[in-house]
Design a protein around this nucleic acid. Structure first.
Lengths: 346, 346
DNA sequence: GTGAAAGCGCTAACAA
DNA sequence: TTGTTAGCGCTTTCAC
């Protein structure tokens, strides 16, 4: 027979009694707070170990902190996000904080709202929003309630910090690379954006903009050719089909995301075109896909770990100091040239 | 100037006052508990809406439930897990429960312990462990503390429910398929397992076993050829290299996971072998990789959504009824034949 | 430096 | 059916 009721949890009172001190003293030791002598600390620590005591976060949260940080991921499937999460957890490994991931519903504002509310309701000490699609007013509302860091979305706000990668530069890296290989007819597949505020804040828009500017800088303004679909494999497939139907088809396709590039490769294979001999392809994000040998996709690396660890750093600062100022960090991407791009033929 | 302090949260007392009822009444309405007239319910609901009240989960948890379910993922990078998570969140969408994901540290017992403890400390009402690697005693310890469902690990326990896919059958599906295509020298790449209890409980071991048995059933006992590496791309690469070094190399390789198959394809490409003309390759899990056109990997589909939704169902049952019995659900996989397997040549 | 006591927001006995 | 009241486990004044 199993014990029908789980054994009662060890509480701070048990520890206090066992160490022959007050619960206040134990609490102070737990929080490394001022007002406990070294001897007292030692006594309490021993009692904690002996009883196997662990504080109940929910109870702590009622007065103080829960030592919990929520990370909202818009799409667990996107292979770029694990990098960011690693950066976050890595930096938090030595602290008392614990990370929990809120599974976002693939770029759906409603789901985002539900998750962020759930995080706030659970007393999370801070929130990291990764590539949120919600309206800026929503983000500011969240940030007014709980310390917040927004990742992968441009546009400053006084109430939250941001960590982004320079998408304009990233796009330029790709264009420079392709131009360097002799390409001129370089097309771009972007994620279609309608919302006016998002149009400047979302990375996809920035990439398209970076592409446009870089093309102009190379004197290729007339060759600018952008297809608007969505950042999915299907979107890439569809985009490539449209580009292949052009009277003069491009010699290179710059997809706004690796997953889009996958769809492009797929469509090119169906059309009987070989990469990179007939056409060059580049992606963005340098996901696991990209590095995988048989694919070997030229891509832009965003240094996800750094993004994550910077986000945590800012968040902890915000939690600790309740700073009035907001910080924006912009990291620089690098190009990873692989086998899907080559010197233009013919 | 922003308000320096976030506006005080609306509490159950505010709602009670606004609706001119007791806090008990509000609490009952929140929990759909017995003992509130329809009129009272209506009054309270209105007050809740007007004030925009949301209960604080931490405070609820101190006496009752937190309406939070924790899902431990051993490896966010594994593209099979999102399917399971979708199945979980899908079934929970209409309930008051919210899911949070604990990012596991890639099959590390220490990290698993930390995450599960963190979940318990945060008063989660139930826990779903996906493919945990911890010792069975650890799992039973967790299950004794909080309602628990274990996914993707064979072996029954009276204290937790399990949902698994029939890995033995899945492996047999692959072998049958390959034998049907005329293959006889079919090799398998497995994940090396040392721990004696895990050796029977982990899916990888079951797949290897299924392979062995299916080979025997086809009278190919002498052709059984297993390479032990790990379930990673490198593991697959390494395994394939070992197999290619055989005096008589296999005509087909059955990798224990899609990610392993990726490494295999990589190694074969390096060796100048073409798939499936020179050699057939099959994976397991039917991840996004597999379905991707240029790869088009034959694989075994585990119906992740069903696994997830079944796990939640069992967990909610356990939370509600504190049942003394444990349930085991075993789902059946299906084979998805694609272009990496073909009739044996020569 | 230390501890008593109040209270965080909610639920659950128990009275009314 | 309704409301009163006592906690849940912790942190935080505020005395000492």
């Amino acid at each position: 027979m199993e014990p029908p009721t789980p054994p009662r949890r060890v509480t701070i009172v048990d520890v206090a009694r066992h160490a022959r001190v007050s619960t206040t003293a134990v609490s102070k030791v737990l929080r490394n707070a001022y007002g406990a002598s070294p001897e007292m600390r030692a006594k309490v620590r021993r009692a904690i170990d002996e009883l196997g005591y662990r504080p109940l976060a929910a109870a702590r949260g009622l007065r103080g902190q829960t030592y919990t940080i929520g990370v909202m991921l818009p799409d667990i499937r996107n292979p770029f996000f694990p990098e960011i999460v690693d950066g976050i957890t890595g930096r938090l490994a030595d602290t008392d904080y614990q990370v929990f991931l809120g599974p976002g519903g693939c770029n759906d504002e409603q789901t985002e709202a539900r998750i962020t509310e759930a995080m706030i309701d659970r007393g999370m000490d801070g929130i990291i929003l990764i590539a949120p699609v919600s309206a800026r007013s929503r983000l500011e509302h969240i940030a007014a309630t709980v310390p917040t860091v927004v990742v992968g979305r441009h546009g400053h706000s006084p109430v939250y910090d941001t960590v982004t990668d320079d998408d304009v530069t990233g796009a330029a890296l790709v264009v420079d690379h392709l131009v360097g290989l002799g390409h001129r007819r370089i097309a771009h597949i972007e994620h279609h954006e309608t919302d006016p505020t998002r149009i400047v804040e979302m990375p996809n828009a920035q990439r398209a903009d970076g592409y446009r500017r870089a093309m102009q800088a190379h004197g290729l303004a007339d060759e600018i050719d952008i297809v608007s679909t969505v950042y999915t494999q299907q979107g890439g497939h569809e985009g490539a089909r449209q580009l292949l139907a052009r009277p003069q088809r491009p010699t290179a396709i710059f997809a706004g995301a690796d997953i889009v590039a996958m769809g492009v490769l797929d469509a090119l294979a169906e059309a009987g075109l070989s990469v990179p001999d007939d056409i060059s392809v580049a992606g963005y994000d340098n996901t696991t896909f990209a590095s995988f040998g048989p694919i070997s996709l030229t891509s832009v690396d965003q240094a996800g770990r750094e993004i994550g660890s910077n986000a945590v750093r800012l968040l902890l600062e915000r939690i600790a100091e309740r700073q009035k100022t907001s910080v924006q960090i912009k990291l620089s991407p690098t190009l990873v040239a692989r086998r899907t791009t080559a010197r233009v033929s013919g």
